[in-house]
Design a protein around this nucleic acid. Sequence first.
DNA 1: TATGAATGAGGGTTCATTCAT
DNA 2: TATGAATGAACCCTCATTCAT
Lengths: 217, 217, 217, 217
Amino acid sequence: MLARVSSTPSFKRLPRAVREQQMLDAAVKVFSRRGFHAASMDEIAEDAGISKPMVYAYLGTKEELFIACLHREAARMMLTIAGAADPDLPADQRLWRGLRAFFGFVGAHRDGWAVLYRQARGSPPFATELAAMRARLVEVVAGMFDHALRARGREIAATELEVVAYALVGAGESLADWLADHPEAEPERTATRMMNVAWLGAAQLLDGVTWRPPADD
Amino acid sequence: MLARVSSTPSFKRLPRAVREQQMLDAAVKVFSRRGFHAASMDEIAEDAGISKPMVYAYLGTKEELFIACLHREAARMMLTIAGAADPDLPADQRLWRGLRAFFGFVGAHRDGWAVLYRQARGSPPFATELAAMRARLVEVVAGMFDHALRARGREIAATELEVVAYALVGAGESLADWLADHPEAEPERTATRMMNVAWLGAAQLLDGVTWRPPADD
Amino acid sequence: MLARVSSTPSFKRLPRAVREQQMLDAAVKVFSRRGFHAASMDEIAEDAGISKPMVYAYLGTKEELFIACLHREAARMMLTIAGAADPDLPADQRLWRGLRAFFGFVGAHRDGWAVLYRQARGSPPFATELAAMRARLVEVVAGMFDHALRARGREIAATELEVVAYALVGAGESLADWLADHPEAEPERTATRMMNVAWLGAAQLLDGVTWRPPADD
Amino acid sequence: MLARVSSTPSFKRLPRAVREQQMLDAAVKVFSRRGFHAASMDEIAEDAGISKPMVYAYLGTKEELFIACLHREAARMMLTIAGAADPDLPADQRLWRGLRAFFGFVGAHRDGWAVLYRQARGSPPFATELAAMRARLVEVVAGMFDHALRARGREIAATELEVVAYALVGAGESLADWLADHPEAEPERTATRMMNVAWLGAAQLLDGVTWRPPADD
DNA sequence: TATGAATGAGGGTTCATTCAT
DNA sequence: TATGAATGAACCCTCATTCAT
């Protein structure tokens, strides 16, 4: 009889919560490596060290699984950012801390970022999910501006504010992409660069300086 | 299930160039509506009013077809932007015209934009293609800055410049997305908003003003 | 996807016989609602308020479970019918009582009937089971006729008798189906109708009247 | 080089209509042999001498395929029966011809009958389809009765008529099942037997004879 | 007794892609 | 040029069934 020399101690039965995290880890990894459609549930399951039916049992459909990834990564990110902001600091300090936390997160979770902000953008079912998350970010940024403006006795229409915030968030995402693609780049320096783009203009806006299109054009 | 309907009375035998444009039109439409993977060659062929083998004969693989779309749309966009910039104008005027052209293009080709900048981001095979195109844009923006800096006898390290340009391009893309999603928004106003974000800060940078992280942090 | 809800506070440790009946109740319900294949052991277990392994421990395989349902329902039905017939009554009275009992049973156990006579018919493994049960019914009906015929000094070949009985049973099943689908219908009236179909012809046959195909045809 | 001695002349590309019939033939065969769920699209495709995607392309989903079978078989059957009935004949002659045609059809298409009247009964999605077809049959039978009654200056309530017809149809189906299971049985004799069950009672009903439940019961 | 955890196996469905006409 | 016919290859998903506790 062939002796079965098993080196691995035969994986035990783990409680649901643990397995779910393992699955999400694997899913984020595979989704980010292959893209949503090219990723196969087989690969995810294998990578999680579990059989496919378990994935379905715990996290549902491939689409639902992807959304679960989205949510987990987004929640983590928002938590990181929220933890860094101190409402009592002056506006630029708050922005700086927020950005540092943001880029720090992206640098530490390049996979998660890829899932979150690259894959989700394309396909209709996720675009809305992503839009919702980005909206939260936009709101935070817009809120910061509004706060700073009021502190200076100034005010800007809500839509206007939102659009500016939208642009800044976009700039941030873009740099985050850049960061995710440059493994050697330091998150903190990236944050500084972003401040140079965002704050210098913002400070002007806060002081009431605006740019207007040339009249004759 | 294939419906057994007789197709349109047939405008047969068009010259190749025309057919190819029809196909690309259809492809852009379908890709933008469904996303790359959810789009089926069947739907594209049908929408182009042509049979599937023709699509393969003229434009090749689904992937190649998508890339063909990318190229056509990118070329159109670059052409539009390039046509708007006059190298003799002052920096802010050039930026303003470029942005106006850019948002005008996006407003007029929302489908194309969606294919170009949303779908392509996710899946590895296209990400590189897209990156190349964006690099060209970044280069243009960075070039503008460099030009303006030199005119003022100043200089910034190339990487630094690139990163800032990257951020601005990101902000622009973000607003373009916003524009693509708000059919009622006016491209020109969006361009103005973008100027307020980009130029006010940029002008500072051009004047040598920089933001630095607090020392004690 | 498995919902993570805590189940009912648990009426644990019931004696086996009780549990088995609960399971059979649930099984009959689910089988009749979904059909054999569409029914899942999960749903049955949940509906019985018990975990799946218990179902397997007590009633075995899905197929065995279905057969157990068949048997229980058939036994109940035969018991009901047998309890209604009094061998000393004249033939039409016996038939009438039997039918009344039969339709009464169907009306009271529409689920069970559905399992018994609708699901089982289709799939090979159960068709034989069902055939056996129906054979018992046919035999009873044929027996009644034979008895009545002999009482009149007449006789019919066994096969002939069986076929006629078979037809009558089919008519009964058909009306039972009709009854199962019309919740407002009264079992007793259905039985009367069945008598009008069955007995009027039967009485003729008992009296030696037969129908013959036209010679020239 | 191995010569490829192919005896079959390599199946040609057949027009859609032909292939569809081949597929339906195969489907009816497999469905009747295995039952709906146990039947696999693979087996059907193979049996039809074609690849699976063609089945999907032409006839759609497994469910749709089954329904297509139902419809084809039902249409054939109704055509056969309708072709046999001559409205000018007396009632019993019409019934006789109809039944002979019916049992003849079942005898000649045992597979089709099995699909039609056995499989469909169980699962919800098909039960309705089947019910509709059976309703047409019931209507025909009821119509015949109504016609004969009016010819005798008599009348019965529509529901009453329908229920009786329902029972007769059930009896017919039951004998058809019996016939399908007894390969050696002759359809014509079965039809004669059915007449003995159906007509003798029916004739009584037509003459106004009815059975009533005993008053004291 | 009772159950959460786990899986092998298989089926339906879709799609990009290519012949043969 | 143009297309209907045809397919190989995957992939998602489900389910009956069994351990290990």
